[in-house]
Design a protein around this nucleic acid. Structure first.
Length: 870
RNA sequence: GCCGGGGUGGCGAAAUGGCAGACGCAGCGGGCUUAAAACUCGCAUCCCGCAAGGGAGUGAGAGUUCAAAUCUCUCCCCCGGCACCA
């Protein structure tokens, strides 16, 4: 430790003004942080505040992270971390989301790629509007102040963003292209307007975005969300349902793919028509039901309609009218949580009408029940209590018959205690009796189609994307309503439709834009007569659906992006972000890619080729948030520095599994980084072995190369291999462990001496280079202090030689009957015979074999011998 | 209920068929210090033993194997997602 102090003295500099000697006190806690007058080449101490600011400035001035579309001899790599919503609440979770992504981007840059790593802000959204209501600031003011704060945080992190490409979605330069794409989608029939239910919070008296409904409740006031019918704009995402299921070419976590598959919810079945012409004299005279179990159709004992089903009114007989109306009223009043609770008892009411099962000609009662969803399938189901759990419960409650038509194996013909939903043998099914239900399903489907009773149908859980929002802080939908001309798109040349600056945010339940007559009243672009603008704004997921493409042409005034630039960078090579966006953003964005491809804007199918999901950072078993569990990064940065914080967040554990923050743990990586700092600057150790003795050195001198040299070289190459392979796969925690082991080893070597200068220098350079993506400021400073040319971040990663990684000797474990008994050190690549001979010669092993017969000997090369005795 | 992910020392975690607990935190002991902090060296899964050594051990239980944290089956617990999708 004295080497720094003596260096400082011998350098002839006057002692610094500090009263404490170097290394005393925890380095970052005292007087110093942020003292600009201190010379930044203070040798002895690692002072993050100085070097971090210094390099952040230098990186910006020299523009080393600015990406060019093409660089001779390099492949492009588009590294993107999901851009943030600029909430006022910047916490350490943001660092956890962004710093490892930056480390990986830096790693890829050093791995020889032409990397673009941009950043922007998802700046439209409800919180800004809520803040406006609460504190009387304009959403723009609140948002832009937060953007400024987050930019500062990103700079503090030392992230290698190309700030020239920054995008802020609430600017007209960005959102005009949302409007542009909306119009293109309209032209292509991908955008349409129809009345549809929106999530409605009765307490806030406003609609909510889907992402603001959690467990059926309003996020802010926890009021149960209901539905309200409004004319709304939709994107026809269902057109791509099948293609969206196709995910072979994207390298995403299986979990996310599965979530998307579940969300799309493709299900193949049969639509069967139940005749009701006896009750409705005019067409349509049947109730269409959707089933995936046509094999159970002979077991239908009733038909249930959703309360919202259009035929309910027509089918209800006079005697039942009152009861049915009451039932529907009651259902309507229920919240979505109540309606969809699986716990709830199933209820229903008879309409008095009957429907005819086309397969067997039976008349079965038609009921209304709110366990049937109006929005799925045909909004009506055939009730098969014997083979569907819900129908079973419903039939039990109302005493409806239960008829078995798919017999369980060994069925005695008796009553069932519960619905039997597995395959079986057809019974009570007319001509299909005796068939396995699997075949029955085929044959019955064929018959239904042949007889014209219905058809094979595929349904999806996925709905078209409702993009209308009754809010102010979003992209105005560029449409004008004119009495004679109808719905008229705003001509592209008139874009952008600017969001009016002044707005009222009274919670009236109406879109705030309706309150601005200068916005609403407009001349029809077609006929010139007085007309009115659409006053809803777009869902903010519109912004994030294509922002990655805007990064490729951030400043293009003529187009959203150019085909060339998009082609140079997209699809994003590595996308990173939380799993909370698994379905919404990631699905919308995939839809957008396919739509843009069909419209000729891009030439690929998918937005994000590889996806990595980081886990959640928690503290004391709770999520970190401003309100309940705050953890502000800035005091941590002040105390330890950004590099230490970055390292600690990556060291916590595997990035995809999330991490548990502890205030104490960070001191470990802090100490380590200081040790690295000291080690790299401590100078070349003695070429002669010191009396401290190299106990750990193996092999001694060989061919003029000292044991210390071979040992150090091996450590250098092994560490290079470990760090590079770990970093590639986002295993930051084990990469850092490998570097820690390397520094521990080098500290020993330094104390022991006996290493030659080229070997030592090579080790030092590797250490700094491998550290660079993880702790970019410290590595940059050390690189400079080792008299290398700027910048360490423009260097290539070190390479390793596999032959130098392998050890000369190996420790072979000896087991007797699978139990560890001894070990021997032998030359690497020792033959099986030799290894076994050494094992059998071992005294401890002999003791355990005494008086027993050897039945088997197992040798795992360079690892283990297992002697099996009896 | 269904679908994922997970359960390893006091703590964060390594190890994905071959030495369980690398690396680090916290802890204990030594050095340095008037002292403390910092730094540094060492010890550390548990049990028996002065030690040498032995035994047990990766949520529980069974199985496969010369060998299982790792593979198979049954069950328990935690986290996340979906949830009357006919």
């Amino acid at each position: 430790m004295t080497s720094q102090a003596s260096d400082q003295e011998s350098s002839g500099k006057p002692p610094t003004a500090r009263s404490t000697p170097a290394r005393e006190g925890f380095p970052f806690t005292d007087d110093g942080a942020g003292n600009g007058s201190r010379p930044s080449d203070d040798r002895g101490r690692h002072i993050p505040a100085d070097i971090e600011l210094k390099w952040q400035r230098r990186w910006e001035e020299s523009g080393i992270y600015r990406a060019k579309d093409h660089v001779e001899g390099k492949k492009n790599w588009f590294a993107l971390t999901m851009f943030p919503y600029p909430s006022g609440d910047v916490h350490i979770g943001h660092w956890y989301a962004y710093a490892p992504g930056d480390a990986h981007a830096r790693f890829m840059r050093m791995a020889g790629y032409n990397v673009m790593h941009p950043q922007g802000f998802d700046a439209f959204g409800l919180p800004a509007e809520n803040a406006a209501i609460q504190r009387g600031t304009h959403p723009r003011q609140w948002t832009l102040a937060n953007v400024e704060n987050m930019r500062r945080q990103f700079r503090l992190m030392g992230n290698s963003y190309d700030w020239d490409r920054e995008i802020v979605t609430c600017t007209p330069e960005y959102y005009r292209w949302n409007q542009y794409f909306f119009l293109k989608f309209m032209e292509a029939g991908l955008a349409y307007r129809k009345a549809g239910p929106a999530n409605w919070c009765p307490s806030c008296n406003t609609t909510l975005a889907n992402e603001q409904v959690k467990d059926g409740k309003c996020e802010r006031c926890e009021t149960a969300v209901t539905k309200r019918d409004l004319p709304q704009w939709f994107f026809r995402i269902t057109k791509y349902a099948d293609e969206l299921l196709q995910m072979d070419e994207i390298e995403w976590p299986e979990k996310i793919k599965l979530m998307q598959r579940n969300w799309i919810g493709k299900s193949e079945g049969v639509t069967v028509h139940f005749d009701v012409s006896a009750f409705i004299p005019f067409a349509p005279s049947y109730v269409a039901t959707f089933t995936t179990r046509i094999d159970t159709v002979f077991g239908v004992t009733f038909v249930v309609l959703a309360p919202e089903h259009p035929l309910v009114e027509k089918l209800t007989q006079p005697a039942q009218r009152k009861a049915v109306h009451e039932y529907i009223e009651n259902a309507r009043r229920q919240s979505e949580i109540e309606r969809t609770s699986t716990e709830r008892e199933k209820t229903g009411v008879a309409t008095g009408a009957y429907a005819v099962n086309p397969l067997n000609g039976e008349r079965v009662p038609v009921l209304v029940g709110d366990y049937v969803l109006a929005t799925y399938g045909t909004g009506a189901v055939m009730g098969v209590p014997a083979h569907d759990e819900r129908d079973f419960a419903f039939a039990k409650k109302y005493g409806l018959p239960i008829r078995v038509v798919v017999a369980p194996p060994g069925w005695s013909g008796g009553e069932l205690d519960a619905a039997y939903v597995e395959p079986g043998t057809q019974v009570n099914s007319g001509e299909f009796n005796g068939l396995p239900s699997k075949d029955g399903m085929q044959r019955m489907a064929e018959k239904v189609e042949r007889e014209g009773w219905g058809s094979r149908t595929t349904t999806y859980h996925l709905r078209d994307w409702l993009i209308s929002r009754q809010r102010y802080w979003g992209t105005p939908i560029p449409v004008i309503y004119c009495d004679p001309c109808g719905t008229v798109p705003v001509p592209v040349v008139d874009l952008p439709v600017l969001l009016p600056e002044k707005a009222e945010f009274r919670p009236t339940g109406q879109s705030p834009l309706t309150l601005d007559p200068t916005f609403v009243n407009v001349k029809c672009p077609k006929c010139g007569r007085a007309a009115k603008r659409e006053t809803d704004t777009m869902d903010t997921f519109m912004d994030s659906s294509w922002y990655h493409l805007r990064f490729t042409s951030a400043h293009d005034r003529e187009r959203p992006f150019s085909l060339d630039s998009a082609g140079a960078w997209a699809p994003v090579h590595q996308y990173m972000g939380g799993a909370e966006h698994a379905v919404m953003h990631l699905l919308y964005s995939r839809f957008f890619s396919k739509a843009l491809r069909d419209l000729g804007y891009v030439k690929f199918d998918e937005p994000y080729k590889r996806l990595f999901n980081q886990g959640l950072l928690i503290k004391d078993h709770k999520k970190i948030s401003k309100r309940s569990n705050p953890l502000n990064p800035e005091p941590v940065v002040e105390q330890y520095g950004a590099d230490t914080l970055r390292l600690y967040l990556m060291f916590l554990g595997p990035w995809d599994q999330g991490g548990d923050w502890s205030d104490a743990g960070i001191r470990g990586v802090s100490r380590w980084l200081i040790r690295v700092w000291d080690l790299v600057q401590s100078g070349y150790p003695s070429p002669q072995p010191t009396p401290k003795g190299p106990a750990s050195m193996e092999g001694g001198d060989k061919g003029g190369v000292s044991g210390a040299d071979r040992d150090t070289t091996r450590a250098s190459h092994m560490t290079t291999k470990r760090v590079v392979t770990d970093m590639r796969e986002f295993r930051f925690n084990t990469a850092i462990s490998a570097l820690m082991e390397f520094t521990n080893k080098l500290s020993e070597t330094q104390a022991a001496g006996g290493v030659s200068k080229p070997v030592w220098d090579d080790a030092m350079d590797r250490l700094v280079l491998l550290l660079a993506p993880l702790a970019p400021h410290t590595a940059e400073e050390l690189w400079e202090r080792r008299s290398h040319a700027y910048s360490v971040h423009q260097q290539a990663l070190p390479v390793w030689d596999e032959s130098l990684v392998a050890a000369d000797t190996v420790t072979i474990v000896i087991q007797v009957n699978g139990k560890l008994r001894s070990q021997v050190v032998l030359p690497a690549g020792v033959s099986e015979a030799e290894a076994i001979a050494s094992a059998l010669a071992d005294a401890v092993v002999q003791r355990h074999m005494e008086g027993r017969e050897i039945v088997r000997k197992i040798y795992v090369p360079n690892r283990l011998v297992n002697v099996v005795v009896k």
